[in-house]
Design a binder for these strands. Structure first.
Ligand SMILES: [Mn+2]
Ligand SMILES: [Mn+2]
Ligand SMILES: [Mn+2]
Ligand SMILES: [Mn+2]
Lengths: 219, 219
DNA sequence: CTAAATTTTTAGGCTAATCTAAAATTATAT
DNA sequence: ATATAATTTTAGATTAGCCTAAAAATTTAG
């Protein structure tokens, strides 16, 4: 059975929320993410349940069925492959790709995405460091940690971002931080949780709002 | 003002029909092309007229306004650039590209299409020999003729097709005919208008149904 | 353990895009 | 010139996706 663009966006939202919370996904959480009213979400949840893409129990929240999960992951795969394409082949910067990928991810053509994948040399990560699911829906997870929980005195590599908004990515660009950049945590201010970071011999103070949006890995 | 996918498809249909007939475009002609009922077309025509994309007089048919024409040509530009991309970069054959391009042509991102254009080296023709409008909406027309009107004894180059359906293109593939192929019109059977064609020293009889769908140019 | 707050669902309505059936208009053929 | 045929438009429904307001269910606080 085929899915509409709107249904696909709901499945993706449910998938992403479930990645964070691990439990049933609530109507309100979906409404917030989709930017729709809870009543609209309820309507759609009934439809998705009818299509066996989610299991839905009134007042109790939803979980993706295996079919629903595979559908969501396939959309995410397409989104991330398109983002790589835009950056690698079309001179887009990492803060420009998301909105276009939101449109491109809904293009229906298995051959297209298989060829794009090959054309890009089967990339495993998107421009924001997020893993690209393989065509079977398997996702390779790396053992990254959030910068705010890093140890003082330790050196890390930036491996991803939590917030992929243009505004945040431009902040990182300004301070020459990207995927692969080495960061040394020099000091932590306990009062506001801000970190002093050393990047290529330059010192930079990052507020908690910043450090909770950067993924790093011990070198 | 932004256009919906459906509105864009109507504008494209009106544009293509007006290319053939040169006069006002009728409701029924649009209905047939869009594969919708005439009443649905009437509804949409009112909407497009409200948006000043067409001039519409009840019972008299429609014409595109300058804005409408530019919108239609921009969609066609995107369609044809995507077709080139699919063939040149992603190993699609010319009979596989149309349906995917029908989806891709509606992606809204000026940067994306500008970059694709540059990435492809600013092509002027799509895989079916159709001209690619430039970013200002100008279309370079070539002086092609339809093969059925060609002269016996004359040699031609295939420069395009009228029917881009997968079925017709596969027929051409089977007989090793493509854009650039040399064809010599050896004979014409007056009874059924069929032509005997010589291609690379092989002889082939083409019915009128075939010859009215191939564009050629005198060598 | 109840009362208040919060969350979720239901009820009813709206718009875009489609449809069928019937009415209105225009074209065609004696 | 008029009757018939064809085309086009109107009228009234339907479906997807969204909304607001109110009701119902669940959670939280005292
Ligand atoms: Mn993205
Ligand atoms: Mn991304
Ligand atoms: Mn095409
Ligand atoms: Mn084409």
């Amino acid at each position: 059975m085929s899915t509409t663009l709107t249904e696909e966006n709901y499945l993706k939202a449910i998938y992403h929320i479930s990645q964070q919370s691990k439990s049933e996904v609530s109507t309100n959480a979906i409404a917030e993410r989709i930017d729709a009213k809870a009543s609209s979400v309820t309507d759609m949840l009934k439809k998705l349940a009818d299509k066996s893409l989610i299991t839905y129990v009134k007042y109790k929240g939803v979980t993706l069925t295996e079919t629903g999960r595979l559908t969501a992951v396939d959309i995410i795969r397409k989104h991330r492959l398109w983002e790589v394409f835009l950056v690698e082949k079309l001179n887009f910067s990492w803060d420009e790709v998301h909105d276009v990928a939101e449109q491109l991810e809904h293009i229906k053509s298995p051959k297209l995405i298989a060829e794009i994948d090959a054309f890009l040399g089967f990339p495993t990560q998107d421009p924001h460091g997020d893993p690209i699911p393989d065509k079977f829906g398997n996702i390779q997870q790396t053992n990254k940690i959030i910068l705010s929980k890093a140890d003082v005195g330790q050196v890390y590599t930036c491996v991803g971002v939590l917030d992929s908004s243009s505004e945040f990515l431009k902040y990182l660009d300004k301070h020459q931080i990207g995927i692969g950049t080495e960061l040394k945590v020099v000091d932590k201010e306990e009062f506001d949780q801000s970190l002093t970071i050393e990047i290529a011999s330059n010192s930079l103070v990052m507020s908690k709002a910043i450090t909770t949006n950067i993924y790093v890995k011990k070198i």
